[in-house]
């Protein structure tokens, strides 16, 4: 069953085009110029019940904007979105009952209230019965370890404590869909591990999860599907394994040598398509190869035929490599729609 359905979503922001300085501001008063920035450029997405989706991309790619469109915070410029069968920005109250949202950068707790008071206000807004409230709260207190935070004022909490309290606030009504926008930003490792375990558990229980993050460990730990976005468009959408096989098939064999080799050309001739580079000041070699063309055994044999190997390591591709390549702009949308002719930043009057 589809929990989230987005069809050709677009969001265009308009910002005033002011020249620098006071003169520029004054000039803007008379002659108004705006530039349009396409933050989300035709995104279609379908997320089913119980799916855990990692939504990644470089800064400014449109991740947060997409989340804000899906949660009904922003109204799309064009396109359709349905969450739990309703259009979020048309029916915000109804929508809010079926989702839980955590923005890593911003708390949803009342700043000057004790955490418990914030949770009780949310309980009343969601119309939870006393029994439901206590059942959910007990569970969250135990899983997130926030028992001793309940009586603290939100503004006195540390970042990690606040994040856990925020998660409790977002999950208090047991929502079928949870959006987490950079939930582990600035958290220490122990708290991160606890959060990941917690997220795995709610996903296993059937919660639909959409997670934006820069933390790759989190993606591998929690999510089974990866959506990569760049310049406001989806450049990849698929299973985590499949992504690695598509974009990060290459493996690297690092070899330590007994003596400096005279030449590496011999290895390269034996392994067509592989690249061979010198490492460790000549006392090592790194061979990058495609496992479909050469097995690791072939590669090792080729190296040993030329040089004396002391030690070796094979580096498996990680999701990190894929995402890093996206961030570096190496994965661009298909050849038919190059980003150069996108309508970004075209001035309108």
């Amino acid at each position: 069953m589809a929990r989230i359905e987005a069809d050709d979503l677009r969001k265009v922001f308009r910002s005033p085009d002011k020249r620098p300085g006071l003169a520029g501001s004054l000039r803007h008063l008379v002659e108004r110029r705006y530039s349009e920035k396409v933050a989300v450029d035709g995104i279609s997405l379908r997320v089913d019940e119980g799916e855990a989706v990692a939504y990644v991309g470089p800064n400014g790619a449109g991740k947060s904007t997409t989340i804000k469109l899906l949660t009904g915070i922003l109204v799309p410029t064009s396109g359709e979105v349905r969450v739990n069968g309703i259009v979020p920005h048309r029916n915000r109250v109804e929508n809010a009952r079926g989702i839980g949202v955590v923005f890593g950068q911003r708390t949803s707790l009342w700043w000057d209230l004790a955490v418990r008071d914030s949770l009780e206000l949310l309980r009343d807004m969601h119309g939870l019965s006393t029994a439901e409230y206590w059942a959910n709260l007990d569970r969250l207190v135990e899983m997130l370890g926030i028992g001793d935070l309940l009586s603290s004022t939100a503004r006195r909490l540390s970042l990690g404590q606040r994040m856990r309290a925020d998660l409790a606030a977002a999950l208090l009504h047991d929502p079928p869909i949870v959006y987490l926008d950079e939930p582990t930003i600035g958290l220490d490792i122990e708290v991160k591990d606890r959060l990941r375990a917690f997220l795995r558990q709610i996903v296993a229980e059937g919660t639909t999860l959409v997670l934006t993050t820069h933390d790759l460990g989190e993606i591998e730990d929690v999510c089974s599907r990866l959506v990569i976005i760049d310049h406001g468009r989806i450049v990849h959408d698929g299973g985590l394994r499949q992504v690695i096989e598509t974009y990060a098939r290459e493996r690297v064999m690092h070899v330590d040598l007994a003596a400096r080799p005279v030449s590496l050309a011999g290895i390269a001739t034996r392994l067509a398509g592989a690249t061979v580079i010198e490492e460790r000041d000549g006392l090592g070699v790194a061979v990058t190869f495609d496992p479909l063309a050469h097995t690791a055994g072939d590669v090792l044999t080729a190296i040993q035929a030329e040089l004396q190997v002391v030690d070796l390591r094979i580096k498996e591709p990680a999701i990190e490599d894929v995402v890093r390549r996206v961030y570096a702009g190496q994965l661009i949308p298909g050849p038919d729609d190059s980003p150069d002719d996108s309508p970004d930043d075209s001035p309108v009057r």
């Binding site: 949660t71 915070i73 809010a96 989702i99």
Partner: peptide, 14 residues
């Protein structure tokens, strides 16, 4: 300053 975001995802008239 973006505080409206959290208000908009609570089930009570913004």
């Amino acid at each position: 300053l973006g505080g409206l975001d959290t208000i908009l995802v609570r089930p009570y008239s913004p």
